[in-house]
């Protein structure tokens, strides 16, 4: 399969560049990462990049301030593809880079490959009910790549790459940062979890989350949830939401509890090696994607199961 000559990778969080590098290596001959500020170059090269373009730190207050600089870099270096990590900022950056290059973004890809010399993307549409294969015309394709789709490559300390400094381009207009209030508490990387216990609206009230957390603790698992649990009732933070527009997970084991199994959710979890469903409705669609299913009341099954597993 022919590869693209040059692929750029871009993430406001350099820790996620490993996944993007893995994706870029599959589709491109040479991989260049764009970084803001020093410190990560070595790690990014060891993780699969051939080149690092380094933008000066401190010129922009917010990451969008760097968009004109990246636009100029793309116009000068003419990569065939730019992979941007899916995030709220990533969507904005990808949209602006694409529009400036006269193209649209291939959003929310679930797989990228090169076919007839152009980048193709498979994407779930209609909440995962169908898969659509898309490509974008134009000299450069901008694609959004979500967490958990590509396994980072094993770091190779022997890998060589060069670092090229790139000048900052003043944006014509910008928003100024007044203050930043980071969300308190935990941050979680569900995409990397080996075991996940997922909960949905089968749970009657927020206090009952302790049942689920207890099972998760017994298993050494992370807790994930459906969209209504985070966006509907806000019982869990958005980072724990699994599904077509949330996190895509690929654990060894997923317990799916009190979740009927709408496709919008199952697409986020159905690559788990083993799926175990617990639901009181024997006709719930989740049983179709489950390897093991218990038809029963989660309020009695979950504590009993936690007990058994504590063994």
């Amino acid at each position: 399969m022919a590869k693209l000559k040059s692929v750029f990778i871009l993430s406001e969080n350099p820790a996620a560049l490993g996944q993007l590098a893995a994706a870029a290596r599959e589709i491109g001959e040479s991989v260049s990462a764009v970084l803001i500020g020093r410190g990560q170059e070595k790690q990014v090269i060891e993780g699969g990049a051939d080149r690092v373009y380094l933008l000066p730190e401190g010129q922009g207050q917010i990451v969008e301030d760097y968009v004109p600089s990246i636009q100029k870099l793309i116009a000068d270096e003419k990569p065939q593809a730019v992979l941007v990590r899916t995030s709220r900022k990533g969507r904005l950056i990808a949209g602006r880079l694409a529009a400036a290059s006269g193209t649209s973004v291939l959003a929310d890809t679930s797989r990228l490959w090169v076919e007839n010399d152009s980048l193709h993307s498979a994407r779930m549409v209609y909440g995962g009910a169908a898969i659509r294969v898309e490509r974008a015309k134009g000299p450069v394709t901008v694609a959004l790549v979500g967490d958990g789709l590509y396994e980072p490559l094993k770091p190779d300390a022997g890998r060589k790459g060069d670092v090229v400094e790139v000048p900052f381009v003043q944006p014509a207009r910008r928003a100024t940062l007044v203050e930043s209030r980071p969300k308190g508490g935990e941050s979680v990387n569900l995409a990397a979890a080996k075991k996940i216990v997922c909960i949905g609206r089968g749970l009657a009230k927020q206090e009952d989350l302790s049942l689920i957390e207890d099972l998760a603790k017994t298993l050494g698992a992370e807790v994930g949830c459906t969209r209504p649990i985070t966006e509907g009732v806000n019982w869990l933070p958005r980072e724990r939401y699994i599904g077509v527009s949330g996190v895509m997970v690929k654990p060894d084991v997923a317990f799916v509890i009190g979740i009927s199994g709408q496709i919008q959710f199952t697409v986020g979890v159905n690559t788990a090696r083993t799926i175990i469903a617990i639901n009181n409705d024997k006709n719930a669609p989740i049983f179709k994607s489950a390897d093991y299913g218990i038809v029963g009341d989660l309020y009695t099954v979950v504590p009993a199961l936690a007990d058994k597993l504590k063994g």
């Binding site: 009910a129 898309e134 974008a136 024997k282 994607s289 093991y292 299913g293 218990i294 038809v295």
Partner: peptide, 25 residues
């Protein structure tokens, strides 16, 4: 710029084991 090359419905896997004993425990 974007064009749809093809669309398809994702395949459904084999059904798994359903457990329904006398009690939930």
């Amino acid at each position: 710029p974007t064009s749809v090359t093809r669309s398809f419905v994702p395949p459904v896997g084999e059904p798994g084991v359903i457990i329904k004993e006398a009690t939930d425990a």
